[in-house]
Protein backbone atom coordinates (compact mmCIF):
# COMPACT_ATOMS: atom_id res chain seq x y z
CA UNK A 1 0.00 0.00 0.00
CA UNK A 2 0.90 3.67 -0.20
CA UNK A 3 1.97 4.75 3.26
CA UNK A 4 1.34 8.33 4.35
CA UNK A 5 1.38 10.35 7.56
CA UNK A 6 -0.70 13.31 8.62
CA UNK A 7 1.02 16.67 8.33
CA UNK A 8 1.51 18.62 11.56
CA UNK A 9 -1.74 20.38 12.53
CA UNK A 10 0.00 23.74 12.39
CA UNK A 11 0.74 23.25 8.69
CA UNK A 12 -2.78 21.96 7.88
CA UNK A 13 -4.44 24.81 9.77
CA UNK A 14 -2.29 27.36 7.93
CA UNK A 15 -3.25 25.84 4.56
CA UNK A 16 -6.98 26.23 5.17
CA UNK A 17 -6.81 29.43 7.19
CA UNK A 18 -8.74 31.56 4.72
CA UNK A 19 -11.56 29.11 4.10
CA UNK A 20 -14.85 28.57 5.91
CA UNK A 21 -16.47 25.54 4.34
CA UNK A 22 -14.00 22.70 4.32
CA UNK A 23 -14.51 19.33 2.70
CA UNK A 24 -12.28 16.86 4.52
CA UNK A 25 -11.96 14.15 1.92
CA UNK A 26 -10.62 10.76 2.98
CA UNK A 27 -9.77 7.77 0.86
CA UNK A 28 -10.92 4.23 1.60
CA UNK A 29 -7.86 2.77 -0.12
CA UNK A 30 -4.29 2.77 1.12
CA UNK A 31 -4.54 5.65 3.57
CA UNK A 32 -7.38 3.89 5.36
CA UNK A 33 -5.25 0.77 5.71
CA UNK A 34 -2.27 2.71 7.04
CA UNK A 35 -4.59 4.62 9.38
CA UNK A 36 -3.71 8.08 8.13
CA UNK A 37 -6.59 9.15 5.89
CA UNK A 38 -9.64 6.88 6.18
CA UNK A 39 -13.12 7.79 7.43
CA UNK A 40 -11.93 7.58 11.03
CA UNK A 41 -9.07 9.98 10.49
CA UNK A 42 -11.42 12.27 8.54
CA UNK A 43 -13.67 12.46 11.62
CA UNK A 44 -10.77 13.23 13.93
CA UNK A 45 -9.20 15.84 11.68
CA UNK A 46 -12.58 17.55 11.19
CA UNK A 47 -13.10 17.69 14.94
CA UNK A 48 -9.64 19.15 15.45
CA UNK A 49 -10.26 21.81 12.81
CA UNK A 50 -13.56 22.79 14.45
CA UNK A 51 -11.96 22.86 17.89
CA UNK A 52 -9.16 25.06 16.63
CA UNK A 53 -11.55 27.53 15.01
CA UNK A 54 -13.82 27.56 18.06
CA UNK A 55 -10.81 28.41 20.17
CA UNK A 56 -9.97 31.28 17.85
CA UNK A 57 -13.58 32.41 17.65
CA UNK A 58 -13.68 31.88 13.89
CA UNK A 59 -16.53 30.27 12.00
CA UNK A 60 -16.00 27.01 10.18
CA UNK A 61 -18.09 24.26 8.66
CA UNK A 62 -16.59 20.86 8.04
CA UNK A 63 -18.01 18.39 5.61
CA UNK A 64 -16.76 14.81 5.94
CA UNK A 65 -16.58 12.33 3.09
CA UNK A 66 -14.38 9.52 1.84
CA UNK A 67 -13.92 8.33 -1.71
CA UNK A 68 -13.52 4.64 -2.51
CA UNK A 69 -10.21 5.39 -4.20
CA UNK A 70 -9.19 8.99 -4.59
CA UNK A 71 -6.78 8.14 -7.41
CA UNK A 72 -9.70 6.87 -9.54
CA UNK A 73 -11.67 9.61 -11.31
CA UNK A 74 -14.81 7.49 -11.32
CA UNK A 75 -14.70 7.34 -7.58
CA UNK A 76 -14.01 11.06 -7.11
CA UNK A 77 -16.00 12.84 -9.78
CA UNK A 78 -19.59 11.87 -8.89
CA UNK A 79 -18.96 12.36 -5.19
CA UNK A 80 -17.60 15.88 -5.54
CA UNK A 81 -20.26 16.78 -8.10
CA UNK A 82 -22.94 15.71 -5.61
CA UNK A 83 -21.40 17.88 -2.95
CA UNK A 84 -20.95 20.87 -5.27
CA UNK A 85 -21.45 24.30 -3.65
CA UNK A 86 -21.32 22.85 -0.14
CA UNK A 87 -17.64 23.58 0.39
CA UNK A 88 -15.05 26.06 -0.75
CA UNK A 89 -11.90 24.01 -0.26
CA UNK A 90 -10.93 20.33 -0.37
CA UNK A 91 -8.58 19.05 2.30
CA UNK A 92 -7.52 15.69 0.96
CA UNK A 93 -6.49 12.81 3.20
CA UNK A 94 -5.39 10.66 0.28
CA UNK A 95 -1.87 10.09 -1.05
CA UNK A 96 -0.32 12.52 -3.54
CA UNK A 97 -2.00 10.65 -6.42
CA UNK A 98 -5.42 11.22 -4.82
CA UNK A 99 -4.77 14.93 -4.25
CA UNK A 100 -3.69 15.29 -7.88
CA UNK A 101 -6.73 13.42 -9.17
CA UNK A 102 -9.00 15.90 -7.39
CA UNK A 103 -6.94 18.82 -8.69
CA UNK A 104 -7.02 17.50 -12.23
CA UNK A 105 -10.78 16.82 -12.25
CA UNK A 106 -11.65 20.16 -10.67
CA UNK A 107 -9.03 22.63 -11.85
CA UNK A 108 -10.91 25.63 -10.44
CA UNK A 109 -11.11 24.09 -6.99
CA UNK A 110 -8.48 24.73 -4.31
CA UNK A 111 -7.26 21.42 -2.92
CA UNK A 112 -4.74 20.93 -0.12
CA UNK A 113 -2.93 17.83 1.09
CA UNK A 114 -3.48 16.91 4.72
CA UNK A 115 -0.94 14.08 4.46
CA UNK A 116 2.67 13.63 3.50
CA UNK A 117 3.01 10.59 1.26
CA UNK A 118 5.98 8.53 2.37
CA UNK A 119 6.37 5.40 0.27
CA UNK A 120 4.94 2.17 -1.07
CA UNK A 121 5.38 -0.18 1.79
CA UNK A 122 4.28 -3.10 3.85
CA UNK A 123 3.12 -3.45 7.43
CA UNK A 124 5.73 -4.95 9.75
CA UNK A 125 3.16 -4.92 12.56
CA UNK A 126 0.15 -2.75 13.28
CA UNK A 127 1.58 0.75 13.52
CA UNK A 128 4.93 0.00 11.81
CA UNK A 129 5.40 0.24 8.06
CA UNK A 130 8.54 -0.07 5.97
CA UNK A 131 9.28 0.90 2.41
CA UNK A 132 9.23 -2.09 0.10
CA UNK A 133 8.88 -1.03 -3.52
CA UNK A 134 10.34 1.90 -5.46
CA UNK A 135 8.18 1.08 -8.50
CA UNK A 136 11.30 0.89 -10.68
CA UNK A 137 9.45 -0.86 -13.49
CA UNK A 138 11.76 -3.87 -13.74
CA UNK A 139 11.12 -6.35 -10.96
CA UNK A 140 13.92 -8.70 -9.95
CA UNK A 141 12.38 -10.10 -6.76
CA UNK A 142 12.45 -13.61 -8.21
CA UNK A 143 16.23 -13.43 -8.19
CA UNK A 144 16.60 -11.94 -4.74
CA UNK A 145 14.58 -14.21 -2.47
CA UNK A 146 11.68 -11.77 -2.45
CA UNK A 147 13.74 -8.95 -0.93
CA UNK A 148 14.06 -5.82 -3.05
CA UNK A 149 17.63 -4.45 -3.09
CA UNK A 150 16.58 -1.43 -5.14
CA UNK A 151 14.39 -0.35 -2.22
CA UNK A 152 15.70 -2.00 0.90
CA UNK A 153 19.42 -1.47 0.30
CA UNK A 154 19.99 2.20 1.22
CA UNK A 155 22.22 2.49 -1.85
CA UNK A 156 19.92 0.48 -4.11
CA UNK A 157 22.83 -1.76 -5.08
CA UNK A 158 22.17 -4.55 -7.58
CA UNK A 159 25.43 -6.48 -7.46
CA UNK A 160 25.89 -7.44 -3.84
CA UNK A 161 26.63 -5.84 -0.50
CA UNK A 162 28.68 -2.66 -0.22
CA UNK A 163 30.62 -3.93 2.79
CA UNK A 164 29.47 -1.12 5.06
CA UNK A 165 27.18 -3.28 7.17
CA UNK A 166 28.11 -4.10 10.71
CA UNK A 167 26.55 -6.94 12.67
CA UNK A 168 24.09 -7.39 9.84
CA UNK A 169 22.85 -3.81 10.06
CA UNK A 170 23.04 -1.14 7.38
CA UNK A 171 25.67 1.61 7.70
CA UNK A 172 22.89 4.16 7.39
CA UNK A 173 21.00 3.08 10.48
CA UNK A 174 21.36 0.35 13.07
CA UNK A 175 17.62 -0.31 12.95
CA UNK A 176 17.77 -1.44 9.33
CA UNK A 177 19.02 -4.84 8.35
CA UNK A 178 21.51 -5.06 5.47
CA UNK A 179 19.24 -6.01 2.56
CA UNK A 180 22.03 -7.93 0.88
CA UNK A 181 22.70 -10.05 3.95
CA UNK A 182 18.96 -10.78 4.08
CA UNK A 183 19.02 -11.70 0.40
CA UNK A 184 22.01 -13.94 1.10
CA UNK A 185 20.18 -15.76 3.90
CA UNK A 186 17.03 -16.02 1.79
CA UNK A 187 18.82 -17.47 -1.22
CA UNK A 188 20.83 -19.82 0.95
CA UNK A 189 17.61 -21.17 2.49
CA UNK A 190 16.26 -21.73 -1.03
CA UNK A 191 19.54 -23.28 -2.17
CA UNK A 192 19.94 -20.55 -4.76
CA UNK A 193 23.16 -18.84 -3.67
CA UNK A 194 24.51 -19.19 -7.22
CA UNK A 195 22.10 -16.39 -8.20
CA UNK A 196 24.53 -14.02 -6.49
CA UNK A 197 27.22 -14.93 -8.98
CA UNK A 198 25.24 -13.85 -12.03
CA UNK A 199 26.56 -11.24 -14.41
CA UNK A 200 26.62 -7.73 -12.94
CA UNK A 201 23.79 -5.52 -14.08
CA UNK A 202 23.29 -1.81 -14.51
CA UNK A 203 19.72 -0.70 -14.06
CA UNK A 204 17.95 1.11 -16.87
CA UNK A 205 16.22 3.86 -14.94
CA UNK A 206 12.68 4.75 -15.98
CA UNK A 207 11.99 8.23 -17.24
CA UNK A 208 9.60 10.12 -15.00
CA UNK A 209 6.68 10.64 -15.05
CA UNK A 210 5.94 7.01 -15.83
CA UNK A 211 3.03 6.08 -18.02
CA UNK A 212 1.32 2.76 -18.67
CA UNK A 213 -0.95 2.40 -21.69
CA UNK A 214 -3.13 -0.69 -22.17
CA UNK A 215 -4.73 -0.52 -25.58
CA UNK A 216 -6.96 -3.48 -24.75
CA UNK A 217 -8.64 -1.46 -22.00
CA UNK A 218 -9.01 1.96 -23.57
CA UNK A 219 -12.63 3.08 -23.98
CA UNK A 220 -12.01 5.19 -27.08
CA UNK A 221 -10.76 2.17 -28.95
CA UNK A 222 -13.87 0.19 -28.13
CA UNK A 223 -16.30 2.73 -29.51
Amino acid sequence: MIVAERKPMEEILAEIEDFQKILVLGCKGCTTVCCSGGPKEVETLSTLIRMDRKQKGKEVETLEASTELQCEPESVKPMLENLANQYDVVLSMACGAGVQTVAKLFPDQRVFPALNTNFTGMAEEHGVWTEACLACGDCILGKTAGICPVTRCAKGLLNGACGGASEGKCEVSKDRPCAWQEIYHGLKRLNLLHYLKEKPQVKAWPIHPGKVVREDLRQEKAT
Binding site: N159, G160, A161, G163, A165, G168, C178, W180, Q181, Y184, H185, K188, L193, L196, K197
Partner: peptide
Protein backbone atom coordinates in the same frame (compact mmCIF):
# COMPACT_ATOMS: atom_id res chain seq x y z
CA UNK B 1 29.54 -15.56 7.45
CA UNK B 2 26.99 -13.85 5.21
CA UNK B 3 29.01 -10.63 5.07
CA UNK B 4 32.22 -12.59 4.37
CA UNK B 5 30.69 -14.71 1.61
CA UNK B 6 29.22 -11.58 0.06
CA UNK B 7 32.66 -9.91 0.20
CA UNK B 8 34.33 -12.83 -1.54
CA UNK B 9 31.64 -13.09 -4.21
CA UNK B 10 31.93 -9.38 -4.87
Amino acid sequence: EAAMDLQIMK
